Simulated scan of single mutants.
Amino acid sequence: MTDHFAKNLRFACGYYKSIAEVCRRLKLNRAQFNRYLSGRHKPSANAMMRLCDFFGMEEFEFLLPHDQFQRLLQVKPRTQTIERSNYPELEHLTKLHRTGDSNLEKYLGYYFEYYYSLSSPGKILRTLICIERQEDGVYYQRTERFQEASKNVISHGVYNGAAFFLTDRIFLVDYEARTGYEITETILFPTFRNKLSRLNGLKLGVSGSGERMPCCTRVVYEYLGRSINKHRALSLCGLYDPAGDEIDAPLKEALVNTIAPNEWHFRARH
C-alpha cells in the first residue's frame, strides 16, 4: 500500500515544475515530503487531507495500484516548461498582473462556483475555487468533483489559472491541468460592498462530452473565506438537480441561461 502511494504521489507531482514548488504551495516540510515520496513514511491524517485537497483526489485513489492511478489521471507526455526568455510575448502577462494587482487583494480566498454543467445538461455543477497570491501575480485552482448517476466512480477535474483585474472586471483564465485539453475563461463583476458575498458573470468553455461543443453559461461565485475546511468543502462539490433545495432559490435564478426579447447577445447579469 505504501509503495503504491509513494509511486502515485511522485507521479502526481510530475504535473508541477518541481517538488520544491509542491512543498511550498502545500506548506509542507521538504524533508518530510521526501519521506512520503520514498515510501519510508505514510502521511498523518491531516497531511493526507492536505495532499488530497491540493491534488483534487480522494485518499483511496492515492492508494490504488499505480497503473490504475495513471489511467485515472489520463496520462500524457509531460510538456517542457516554457522559458519566458524564449517567448517575449509572455512579458505582457506580467504587465497585466501588475496593472490591477492590488485590486484583487480583497478577492483572495475560497469560493464555491456554480453554473449549469457543460457536460451534464440540466444539472448545476458546484466546484471549489482557491484564489491566492504567488510571487509574480494572483493565481487560482479550480477543482471539480462529481459522480454521474450511472457510475460509482467519482470523477475529478483540476484546473490551474491566472486572475486579472482590468477596468472594473475580474478576468479568470485556466486550463485543465492533467490533460491540457481545455481552456476556460470567466469574467466576473467585482463587488463594491465592504462585505464580499457573491460574484456574478459569464463562463466560456468546451463541453466535456464527445462533441466538445463551445458553450457559454452564467456563473456565480459564492465566497467562503480565506480559511476553510477544504475536505468538507470538496465533499459538497458535485452535480445538483435545479429542482432540489440544496442550492438557494436566488442563486439558482441567477444561473438561468435566458435571453430577453430586446437582447441581441448573451449577457451577464448582476
Score class of each variant (00 low, 15 high):
residue 137 G to E: 00
residue 122 G to P: 06
residue 130 C to E: 15
residue 139 Y to N: 09
residue 108 L to W: 07
residue 133 R to S: 00
residue 121 P to H: 03
residue 134 Q to D: 12
residue 99 T to R: 13
residue 120 S to M: 08
residue 122 G to F: 02
residue 134 Q to F: 10
residue 126 R to W: 06
residue 132 E to T: 14
residue 137 G to M: 00
residue 99 T to E: 14
residue 131 I to M: 08
residue 114 Y to A: 01
residue 123 K to Q: 07
residue 121 P to Y: 04
residue 117 S to C: 02
residue 105 E to F: 12
residue 107 Y to A: 02
residue 136 D to G: 12
residue 98 R to V: 14
residue 130 C to P: 08
residue 108 L to S: 08
residue 111 Y to P: 07
residue 121 P to C: 04
residue 103 N to D: 10
residue 141 Q to V: 13
residue 114 Y to P: 00
residue 146 F to K: 06
residue 99 T to H: 13
residue 145 R to F: 01
residue 112 F to Y: 10
residue 111 Y to M: 09
residue 102 S to K: 13
residue 133 R to D: 00
residue 141 Q to M: 11
residue 93 L to V: 11
residue 127 T to P: 00
residue 136 D to L: 09
residue 106 K to A: 12
residue 144 E to C: 07
residue 128 L to W: 04
residue 98 R to M: 13
residue 138 V to R: 04
residue 143 T to K: 05
residue 125 L to Y: 03
residue 126 R to Q: 03
residue 94 T to E: 12
residue 132 E to N: 12
residue 135 E to D: 10
residue 121 P to D: 04
residue 139 Y to T: 10
residue 98 R to G: 09
residue 131 I to V: 12
residue 146 F to G: 08
residue 139 Y to I: 09
residue 140 Y to N: 04
residue 107 Y to W: 06
residue 116 Y to R: 02
residue 98 R to N: 15
residue 118 L to A: 09
residue 134 Q to C: 10
residue 123 K to Y: 05
residue 146 F to I: 03
residue 140 Y to P: 05
residue 131 I to Q: 04
residue 92 H to K: 13
residue 146 F to M: 04
residue 97 H to Y: 11
residue 142 R to I: 06
residue 114 Y to S: 02
residue 107 Y to V: 06
residue 125 L to H: 04
residue 135 E to M: 09
residue 137 G to K: 00
residue 115 Y to A: 01
residue 145 R to N: 00
residue 121 P to F: 02
residue 122 G to L: 02
residue 141 Q to F: 06
residue 107 Y to K: 03
residue 125 L to W: 01
residue 106 K to H: 13
residue 144 E to M: 08
residue 105 E to G: 09
residue 93 L to Q: 09
residue 99 T to W: 09
residue 102 S to R: 13
residue 121 P to Q: 03
residue 115 Y to W: 06
residue 135 E to R: 10
residue 117 S to K: 02
residue 130 C to F: 13
residue 142 R to N: 13
residue 107 Y to L: 07
residue 146 F to S: 08
residue 118 L to G: 08
residue 94 T to V: 14
residue 146 F to Y: 13
residue 100 G to A: 02
residue 98 R to H: 14
residue 139 Y to R: 07
residue 103 N to E: 11
residue 128 L to P: 07
residue 122 G to N: 07
residue 124 I to P: 01
residue 106 K to W: 05
residue 140 Y to H: 10
residue 100 G to L: 01
residue 105 E to Q: 11
residue 108 L to N: 09
residue 95 K to W: 05
residue 120 S to G: 02
residue 135 E to K: 11
residue 118 L to Y: 06
residue 99 T to L: 14
residue 125 L to A: 03
residue 92 H to A: 15
residue 124 I to N: 01
residue 123 K to F: 05
residue 127 T to N: 00
residue 130 C to Y: 15
residue 93 L to W: 09
residue 97 H to G: 11
residue 130 C to N: 15
residue 116 Y to H: 08
residue 112 F to R: 03
residue 118 L to R: 05
residue 92 H to W: 09
residue 133 R to F: 01
residue 145 R to V: 01
residue 94 T to L: 13
residue 118 L to M: 10
residue 129 I to T: 08
residue 91 E to S: 14
residue 112 F to T: 05
residue 145 R to T: 00
residue 137 G to P: 02
residue 110 Y to D: 08
residue 109 G to P: 05
